[in-house]
């Protein structure tokens, strides 16, 4: 299955586009997305910028609500990655 990850803040370094398509095994959850992100960051040599991102980011569903690590993803689901925030 595949999901679309909308990128915000520091995670925008992961792609030139606003979203990143991620291939996942069927019935994957958010925890799996964190694992895949760790791999992508390593493959793209972005550890110096994004090493902590997989463990510190939150994820929003399409309803803009934070989802837990055991949240089951659906094929073609659109979710947002929310790196640590700091406005003001």
């Amino acid at each position: 299955m595949e999901i679309q990850l909308k990128l915000y803040g520091s995670s925008k370094i992961l792609s030139d586009k606003d979203t990143l398509n991620i291939q996942l095994p069927n019935n994957s959850n958010i925890e799996k997305v964190r694992d895949i992100l760790t791999k992508i960051i390593s493959e793209k040599h972005l550890k110096s910028n994004l090493e902590n991102l997989p463990k510190t980011a939150a994820f929003f569903s399409e309803r803009d609500e934070v989802v837990n690590d055991n949240y089951k993803l659906k094929d073609k689901e659109f979710i947002s990655i929310i790196p640590p925030i700091g406005g003001g």
Binding site: S10, D69, P83, P84
Partner: peptide, 12 residues
């Protein structure tokens, strides 16, 4: 540089 911030990840 993107600045560090406050994580919204739900606590286990």
């Amino acid at each position: 540089e993107w600045l560090p911030g406050h994580s919204l990840r739900p606590k286990k």
